[in-house]
Structure formats: C-alpha cells, structure tokens
Design a protein around this nucleic acid. Structure first.
Lengths: 122, 122, 122, 122
DNA sequence: GTGGTCTAGACCACC
DNA sequence: GTGGTCTAGACCACG
C-alpha cells in the first residue's frame, strides 16, 4: 500500500490516504485496472477504521481516479492518453497558486522564492 | 487593521487573522512598539467574536511577534536588527520545505516547479 | 442473447439482464415458447457469474414472463391475446407515474415536461 | 423540514434527504442564506442517525446548493440570477434522458409516451 | 452551541 | 468474498 499515516498531522486521516494514493496513481505507480486492496484489509494494514478508508476511496472515485464495482472491488481508472498528465498538472497548479499567494503575502519576489526553493529542493 | 476575513475560506478565522497580521509585522508595515487595537474594538471592526480575536493575539504572542502588557494593550515586539528578517525567512522556509516535498511526491523536477511558478507568480 | 452489460452502470448486473430480457419479451422479439439458453451458457456469453444469471431468470419467472421446466430449460411464457400488451403497459405506467411525481416536485407543468421530452426523445 | 423518509424505498436514506432538499432549494422554497437546522436536530426530527444527515448535507454542499460554515451552521447558497433555473433544468434533463431511454427500450413512440403521461400527470 | 472526524460493530445487496 | 448503508457514541476544533 505504501501509505504512511501520521496522527500528529493536522490533516484528517482520510485526506492523508487520499492524497498519497492520488499521488501514486497520478505518478503512474499504480497502473490502470490495478485492484486496490479491499477496504477492510486496507483498514487493518493502516490500523484505521474501515469507514476512514472508505471515505478516502470515495474521494478517489469522485476525482475519477478509481472505479468501484460493487461486490468485486475498486480499480484504478482508465485514463485517456495524456489525461493523467493533465490531471496531475491541474492538481499541482492549484497547489502552486495557493503557495505563490502565501509567498507574495510576505513580500517575496519571484527570484527570492526560486532562490530559496533551490536550497530546499534536494 | 487591513485584515480581510472570508467565511468561505477553509482556514479558521483566527488563523486568517494571525497570518495576515504576522505578515504585516514581518514585512515591517507594523513597526516595533505599534499598539494593536483592543480586542473588543478589533472584534467589532472585523465583525467576529472577541474570543476569536483573542485567539489570534495569543498566537501572535506565542510567535514572539507581539507583547502583551496587562491593562495597557498589545504592542508589536522589538526586534534586534536583522532579527525580523531572520524570523520571516524561517517561517517561509518551513512552508517552502513542505511545498517542495509535495511537488517531489509527484515526480516534478526543480526546473519544472520553477517553470510553473513563473506562470502563476503574477 | 442481445444483452449488453455495463460494469459502470449504477444498476446491478442481474437487473440489467432482467430489464433487457423483459423488454425483448414484451416487445415480442422473443416469442412464446422460445427456449432461453441454459444459465451456464448464458453466463459464459455474458461473462458474468452463473449466480447472477440465475437471479435474473428468477426475476423473469416472478414477473410471469418465463416459465421454468426442470431438466428441460426456461421458456418464454404463453400470453393470452392482448395480455402481453397489457403487461407492457402496466410496467410502463408504473414507471411513468414515478417519473411524473419527480417532475412535479420541481414544479414543472405537463406542457414543460412534454416540451423537454420532445428534445431528448431522439 | 418537510422531508419524508421511507424505509421501504430502495433508495438509501441520505439520498432521499438529499433529493428532497435539493428539490426544495431549486424550487426556491428555501431562499438563499436560509440556515438549515443543525444536523443533530435534523437527525432527531427525521429519526435517523446524525451521520446519515451529514452525508446528505455533504452531497448538498458538493452540488453547490448549500454552504457550510464550521461552528455556525449550513446555509442555502447564493445563486447568480438564472443560475438556479439552469441547475434545476440540468438535473431534470438528466433524469428525463434516462427515462426516455427506458421508454424507448420498450418500443414506445414519443406520442405514446406523451399520451400516457397526460393520463398520470394529475 | 456548531460542524469535523473517527471508532466499532452491524446488516444488507451483490457476485 | 466484495462494497453500501446505517447506527450509537465519542472526542476535537471553532466561535
């Protein structure tokens, strides 16, 4: 599953799961048609409630990243060629826009941000 | 006060106040020794609860940005020369490190991030 | 068999099969006495479980549309003259009544519904 | 609240609540800014679990019909002029398209459907 | 007071 | 076996 949960994070657990799985799918590490583990098994592995896992799965389905077949399981969705890249870029751009607003609120110029980014981007 | 509150933001109100005031202080727009308005007056201006304002003030004090004098008011803290810049950079670096981790989780290279950042950084 | 199954439909598979077969019978495309394929063969053709096919067959028998003869097979039922039309109309009227209630709950008049229906009824 | 729940319906309870409330909002019976009852109170009135109500409320928010303010309550959203009509028509058209497909599967002509509709549309 | 999240445990429909 | 729904009850953050 390769999902790490932190109880200390201010983010709700279901969202941590959602974000990590969506990242895995959008990076292509989980291929189309791949069958996710059953929610009850995933709940055991992650040591969270079944409902918490289900909530994350629901978000993934709502985003069009997985497809649920009742009685069979949940499968990574098919993507049209290029669609996966497009979705990835949209998600990242949304985040970047928020981040940029934050930096600007401190009066940072674009060049300053780039300079700092180079330092922390291992 | 120059603080804008949005009920539609997913951020709690006290945090919106905290972030905007800390940005004002760290940008130097509120000088050392400046006296913040009494919380009751600020609450009226911002149309929020006194409790909410108090919580924001407490956060500012915890960050060392303001200093409360009982019975007199809350004052923007004194900063040693350069200290204000240092504090600003520390806050920004913390955020940038988190952001960088997020971008990397999608497999983006530093150059790609910089390219996107240039687009959204008006 | 002329039955199309969609895993992406929100309807359960057995119901998809039931609806399509009942429509075929009520439209007269499957005549009285016609012998349905054995459930195992139907399951292979439709690429679904035998249990699923059996459930659809059971629904058809419950509706009086087919008749099972143990050891021989399942046959489309005999209809008295006019009976098939009557059954068809009863099923459709049940659905139409439900639909009409839904439209009315939004305050639509009969004329508005008819107008919209003309647009979507290719 | 004017919501009627049927345990006999094949539709899940949260969806029944969602559909009826969205109909009320789209019909304009609940005006913009109207504050829905707290989920716990609604749960008592409707004699269902708090979570079930919450699920319905979440769907409403996802559809853009209500707006949740943590700690204050849930309010009927503001609509741009005409937007509410547009949304209403979109929802109804979706349903009508499904219904039309069903009628056509039985071989009904448009005129036949209209004829039957006139009978059941009180 | 409000909503947000999480839990454990149950029953059902479907395959 | 799978997911879908519902329950009661708990704790937290926010105002």
């Amino acid at each position: 599953m390769n999902v790490i949960i932190s109880n200390k994070s201010e983010k709700p657990i279901y969202q941590q799961i959602y974000e990590q799985l969506s990242a895995l799918i959008l990076k292509g590490e989980l291929e189309s048609g791949y069958c996710l583990p059953p929610i009850r098994q995933a709940a055991l592995e992650l040591r969270v409630s079944v409902i918490t896992v289900k909530k994350a799965w629901e978000e993934l389905e709502r985003s069009g990243l997985i497809h649920t077949v009742t009685g069979k399981g949940c499968f990574v969705a098919d993507f049209a060629p290029g669609e996966i890249l497009e979705t990835r870029n949209r998600l990242i751009l949304e985040q970047l826009t928020l981040d940029a607003a934050y930096y600007k609120s401190f009066g940072l110029t674009l060049d300053e941000v780039i300079g700092l980014l180079k330092k922390v981007y291992d």
